[in-house]
């Protein structure tokens, strides 16, 4: 079980949270002017990295607020937690080799 630091409530158990996939995906400003491929890319296509991943999480069973998490998909280690609207923190790609992942 992870202890996740909700930016509003403080440290809480993982079961209270819900991960909602990749973050920092901006809606196209003029959807009427873009191709179907570009729209499909916005709606459906997500990165699936091995390593550092920037995600949106929600404190579903607590304050019900959204926030952002930078998580390592190999070790499940949470590298950073920050609020919506804040820029991605500068983090090094993790060296996963030899970490027993």
């Amino acid at each position: 079980m992870l202890l996740i630091e909700c930016p509003f409530c403080g440290p809480r158990a993982e079961v209270e949270f819900r991960c909602s996939g990749e973050g920092h995906i901006a809606r196209p400003e003029t959807p009427e002017n873009i191709s179907d491929e570009a729209w499909a890319d916005y709606v459906y296509m997500r990165t699936n990295p091995k390593g550092l991943h920037f995600e949106r999480w929600m404190h579903q069973h607590g304050c019900r607020r959204w926030f952002c998490v930078a998580r390592d998909t190999v070790t499940h280690k949470i590298r950073a937690i920050y609020k919506l609207g804040e820029a991605k923190p500068a983090l090094d790609e993790p060296k996963t080799e030899g970490e027993g992942a």
Binding site: C9, R12, A13, V15, E16, H61, G62, C63
Partner: peptide
Amino acid sequence: CAQSLLAKAD
């Protein structure tokens, strides 16, 4: 006070 889960209930 805190909002959480008790036996899976909010």
